[in-house]
Amino acid sequence: MPEPTEPTAAARRFENAYFADGLAQHRLVVKRCTACEHAQFPALPRCPACGSWELRDDEIRTSGDVYSWIRINREELVTDDAADLLPLVVVTVDLDDGVRLFGRYAPGGTPAIGERVAGTFVERRGATDLVFERAAR
């Protein structure tokens, strides 16, 4: 698939920069509402739960449970700079701190729904990815 430079670059601008900036520092950062404590990915301009415009950056834990997963085998389905990661397992994780997030899964592994996982920060091509692996329950 074509390298989505533009959308990613656009999404990193303005109030969305916190996520990639956090990963670069090996911190998983979420936008949390100061009024009702609702946490959200992606960061919408205001809290969808209570309407407050006051959101703060909040570092959260990388631990959670696998909600779903896939294994991508075809080059045309991944971004150009991820072709060398095939087959690429992507997990959707319900994090302990109340948000859902996508991440890579440890290479060669096969996750299961409900599996306990934790993320580690892995440098790749000038950026930081969150890579999940099985964790003790």
Partner: peptide
Amino acid sequence: GMAFPGEGALYRYPIGYGG
């Protein structure tokens, strides 16, 4: 093979989760 441009993009494409 299309990339979609919403705010969710930066949680998907950097880890290769496309398509």
